[in-house]
Amino acid sequence: MTEPLLDVRDLVLDVPHGRGSLPILNRVSFQIHPGEAYGLVGESGSGKSVTSLAIMGLLKKPLRVSGGRIGFQGRDLLTLPKREMRKLRGDRIAMIFQEPMTALNPLATVGRQIAEMFMLHQGKSRAEAAPLAVAALESVKVPNADRRARSYPHEMSGGLRQRVMIAMALACNPDLLIADEPTTALDVTVQAEVLRLIKDLCAERGTAVLFISHDLGVIASVCQRVGVMYAGCLVEENETAALFETPRHDYTRGLLGALPRLGSRAAQGRQRLIDIDSIIADRSRLTETRFITPRREETP
């Protein structure tokens, strides 16, 4: 039995409201093992993004953690001093966001920004870091990497910027990469390339991935296991294939049926899409049942 890399246990987040509080996350638990790609899927407001912010220690007020623990390599991130957390961020845990334009500094060349990661976390000098930055750009398949290292974020397309973000995130070979809707702002063909890049690079380097998306198709193409979030709860968790073939929770069934599948019209004619509200009588009772299938240990 291997130790999980990330062990989120009974995480509770809320916002103080009057004398009480509004729950945001309700006892969310999941584990990610080294080298594993884990997907969190859910709609807006389901709590998938705040989960990632909690792991990164980037929660903004008035959000607060009021229970649970986030274990990472044996330490509890929630009790870690700020200084230690800063050292971890970018080095052991890295993150890529939906809109790379806002996450990149518009006034510095992308090469400089990647080089800074090496200077900050590995104590490299500027001269040592510069060629490493070019190599990092090459690893994310940016053409003419040495020339591109000298360009500014606004001179690049959305797809290229997201590659730069990935290069920055993976610069220090982190153990965990958190990808929060990294391809939502991209065109489909660019999305496919970026997804392939994330998947291949992380598999190559043994980086674990926490992949957050509203798009079931995207999650399915990258992750080995999936957790479905609804209203701050993890309502179902399973291996990707099993989850899509035999969804057990009503909400998961609703989500899967609500999407037209490519090729299904040709095969079965135009079926009426499943209206999620017709299978779920009472949305407020959805979080009462949870279907968590434990991870299978891989047997050689």
């Binding site: 489909v188 063909t189 999305q191 390339e193 997804l195 399915a220 193409s221 990707t240 294939a241 999407l259």
Partner: peptide
């Protein structure tokens, strides 16, 4: 062909084609 191949499809887990 490129557009169609790029659609991430839940039915084809683990596959990204471009």
């Amino acid at each position: 062909r490129r557009l169609i191949a790029a659609i991430p499809d839940p039915a084809h887990f683990g596959r990204i084609s471009a």
